[in-house]
Simulated assay, not measured.
Amino acid sequence: MQIDLTGKTAVVTGSTAGIGYAIALGLAQSNARVVVNGRTPSRVDEAVRRLRDEVDPSLVSGVAADLGSASGCAALFEAEPLADILVNNLGVYGLEDFFDTSDETWLRFFEVNVMAGVRMSRFYLPKMIERGWGRVIFLSSESGLNIPADMIHYGVTKTADLALSRGLAKRVAGTGVTVNAVLPGPTLSEGVWVMLQAEQSKSGRPIEEVAAGFVKAHRPSSIIGRAATAEEVANLVVYVASPLSSATTGAALRVDGGVVDTIA
């Protein structure tokens, strides 16, 4: 199976590190022109530099913009007015008890995890429809189905992403544009590494073993019994972004290691 995205432009939000960076790399390796996004110019420049070391440099550019606000989205739209592939990867997460979670935190999570995807899709989808081809992919989470008690606010936003992707798929039916959600489970990205760093330093065990212990303790339904890699998540996203996935739309595609205990 050959995935060739030559001539396609992909915008990947929140792509300076972690899953987003792995997605950007995978798309560029398939010959898409990739637009990297992050909040700060220094992080965007560094991600662009790293990517250009691995792929054709002409395929990679970057836009620094805080997409957790309407003005930040507008800055990205001005810099990149067209996209064939939109990956709504941007997201924030964090442990916090429901009774300690303020209105400000709820609203910030909703702005970043949901409204950024709303604004990005509202801008890019009509142009995809005009051209008769496009891919929109939301990075949801297994937490959108299996709401974690220690970060309910996060789970709620990821459930919203599922609803948004399904509704948009129906809205653009028959246009040649597909909309899907990808649901990672525990993934050994930079953010998770930071969360586990104290335990890794204390035990001296490899970070992969520490992450596997975390999965077994906190996500015992995991079938693979370990954290996925960012590349494993990116592999699914690249396929969904390709012409080969033309019969897949409105789907919630899990790359969660089997954490969600259902056959549906």
Rank of each mutant, 00 (worst) to 15 (best):
89 N>V: 04
85 I>H: 10
55 V>S: 06
190 E>P: 10
100 D>I: 04
21 Y>I: 05
241 A>G: 14
181 A>R: 13
107 L>D: 15
132 G>M: 03
149 A>Q: 06
32 A>G: 04
2 Q>H: 13
153 H>F: 01
32 A>T: 08
210 V>M: 01
180 N>L: 02
193 W>I: 15
216 K>F: 10
33 R>L: 01
67 L>M: 13
56 D>P: 03
121 S>F: 05
43 R>W: 12
71 S>P: 04
194 V>A: 15
128 M>F: 07
243 P>C: 11
136 V>A: 05
1 M>A: 15
197 Q>R: 13
188 L>H: 09
127 K>E: 14
221 S>V: 04
231 E>P: 13
70 A>H: 02
246 S>Q: 04
146 N>D: 15
222 S>L: 12
165 S>C: 06
254 R>I: 13
264 A>M: 14
157 T>V: 00
209 E>G: 09
37 N>F: 05
187 T>S: 13
125 L>T: 08
6 T>V: 07
141 S>N: 00
117 G>V: 09
243 P>L: 06
215 V>Q: 06
100 D>N: 07
85 I>Q: 03
149 A>F: 10
258 G>H: 05
44 V>A: 00
78 E>W: 11
210 V>S: 04
237 V>T: 12
175 T>L: 07
124 Y>T: 04
45 D>E: 08
96 E>C: 12
100 D>S: 07
64 A>E: 07
122 R>P: 11
81 P>H: 14
172 V>Q: 08
172 V>H: 02
55 V>E: 10
263 I>H: 12
140 S>G: 14
196 L>K: 07
89 N>T: 09
138 F>L: 10
167 G>Q: 09
111 E>Q: 12
20 G>T: 01
42 S>Y: 05
29 Q>P: 05
170 K>F: 15
154 Y>P: 02
206 P>L: 04
186 P>R: 12
254 R>K: 14
210 V>P: 03
236 L>P: 12
110 F>Q: 04
19 I>D: 00
212 A>F: 00
57 P>E: 00
56 D>V: 02
164 L>C: 08
221 S>F: 13
190 E>D: 12
201 S>W: 11
242 S>H: 10
205 R>S: 08
116 A>P: 09
247 A>C: 09
95 L>Q: 12
152 I>H: 10
224 I>S: 06
231 E>I: 14
28 A>S: 03
73 C>P: 00
87 V>H: 05
86 L>K: 02
79 A>D: 06
38 G>T: 06
179 V>R: 06
61 S>G: 00
102 S>C: 03
43 R>M: 14
109 F>W: 10
163 A>N: 12
112 V>W: 12
137 I>W: 02
93 Y>P: 00
240 V>N: 09
260 V>H: 13
213 G>E: 02
70 A>K: 07
34 V>F: 05
237 V>A: 11
2 Q>E: 14
89 N>Y: 05
118 V>G: 11
43 R>G: 13
159 T>V: 08
234 A>V: 10
256 D>F: 11
90 L>H: 04
98 F>S: 06
